[in-house]
Write a protein that binds this DNA or RNA. Structure first.
Length: 277
DNA sequence: CAGGCCCAAGACGTTGCGAG
DNA sequence: CTCGCAACGTCTTGGGCCTG
């Protein structure tokens, strides 16, 4: 399955984003784009290619008047080698950090250019055959990126991370994908084989926040994305983000963002409308 | 009716301290 | 470095009430 879309001057459109079970690739052709993903904000320049891992909420906003980019949603299918969530985060940070990111692999640039012309010319909508070819190209890109990231992680590290550091990173990645499920400190302790109180200490030492605070921020950021990108009720969003009580969700949201969920949604819609004018 | 706000109570997380 | 304990603080939940 593949679905592509190109946006030119998207300030005439609403903010884009949402959550879905497919891989999504986002490529900036011109202008500046801001991406909210995994609790982080990525500032993207032209030629940035972003990997959005399946089932992760994301929101894209154009920052410049002249702006064009394309995105493609695809079902990578089984047996296809794709970057994992941690690798996707590393890749996206690199894309965001470098003004013009260069990957030393001719097939990468060629494939990206081919896909960009296919999407911009509208040839993918013309035939099923073209879409199938493009889907293979997308898989090729994912494979190239994964190979590059694998090579990098195989390289000897300057300092070996301790078992505690590894446990914290594992736990962070785990929470990033499982944030919508009930997750207690006891369960985290079982996952990492560390004593609960010690786990909090090492987690805070590595990340600067406690596990509960990190989980809370993931859930609230996901909720904010849902509020601006969907028409789901506040209660439904609370449930989808791992909250079992709408009361507590509403209270936490207001504490974090300064306004209640519904008011926040109104304000975001207002910002989108103003951008249209 | 959906959503926001307040309150109370129990559950759970966090921290300080000490020990192996 | 890791764990255990106790005290304290915060989170979480459910109920009730109010508002638009």
């Amino acid at each position: 399955m593949i679905r592509t879309c190109r946006h030119v001057n998207p300030q005439k459109e609403k903010m884009l984003g949402g959550i879905h079970p497919y891989w999504e690739l986002l490529y900036v052709i011109s202008g500046q784009v801001q991406l909210q993903w995994m609790g982080e904000s990525f500032l993207l320049q032209p030629q940035s290619l972003i990997l959005l891992y399946p089932s992760t909420p994301h929101q894209v906003t154009a920052l410049t008047a002249e702006c064009s980019f394309w995105f493609a949603e695809l079902d990578a299918g089984s047996g296809v080698s794709v970057p994992d969530l941690e690798q996707s985060i590393v890749w996206n940070r690199q894309q965001s950090a470098a003004a013009s990111f260069y990957i030393d692999e001719p097939a990468y640039g060629v494939t990206l250019n081919l896909l960009t012309s296919a999407i911009c010319s509208g040839s993918l909508e013309a035939s099923d055959y073209n879409r199938k070819i493009a889907a293979l190209d997308f898989q090729k890109l994912l494979l190239i990126i994964k190979a590059r990231l694998d090579r990098k992680s195989d390289a000897p590290a300057s300092s070996d991370p301790s078992a505690a550091d590894e446990a914290v990173v594992f736990l962070m990645r785990y929470m990033e994908t499982e944030y919508n499920k009930p997750l207690t400190l006891a369960a985290m302790s079982e996952l990492t084989h560390f004593n609960p109180s010690y786990l909090i200490r090492i987690f805070k030492r590595c990340s600067g926040v406690t596990p509960a605070q990190y989980l809370q921020s993931l859930r609230l950021n996901a909720a904010a994305c849902f509020l601006s990108a969907t028409g789901l009720s506040v209660e439904e969003i609370a449930l989808r983000c791992g909250y079992r009580s709408i009361h507590y969700f509403s209270q936490s949201f207001k504490k974090n963002f300064g306004v209640s969920p519904s008011l926040w949604r109104c304000r975001m819609n207002l910002i989108s409308r103003n951008r249209i004018m």
